[in-house]
Amino acid sequence: MYKKLGLDPPDNPPIRLDRTKVRGEFGLQVDELSGQHLFACYQCGNCSSGCPLAQEMDILPSRIIRLAQLGQKEEIIQSKTIWICASCFQCTVRCPKGIDIQAVMDTLRQIALDEGVDHFGPDQIDSKHAAEVPQPGLVGVYRKLST
């Protein structure tokens, strides 16, 4: 309809939920690869509130989990959040339901890489700036690509 009218698609369309999305391939894949159970999350937000990089993220970690519960794969793998995540384990340590959120983030990056989604890699840093990036940061970036 939007195309017909020459309009851009809406920025925030409703999620049309059905059981194939909730119990869909994406959710099962995340559960299987991460060894975690997405539906254990009751959305308390503790992972987000304790995340040292939350201010740099476009979607808070707790909302990433929520989107995963509802099968919203595209939104997640296009997000900056999964790449900003430094795998510092703060979220995992804080989670009252014992979910290893860091493992979920690793999984989501893996799925994004499999899908060939553009990401930020160490090769995009020019040599001049690469020297200024702290070593743990660089190692972290490589690690994200190797999980």
């Binding site: 925030n12 369309p13 409703p14 939920l17 959305q43 909302r63 929520r66």
Partner: peptide
């Protein structure tokens, strides 16, 4: 669903 900030249609 205020947790995703998205409307839901079922």
């Amino acid at each position: 669903d205020t947790l995703t900030g998205r409307n839901i249609e079922i």
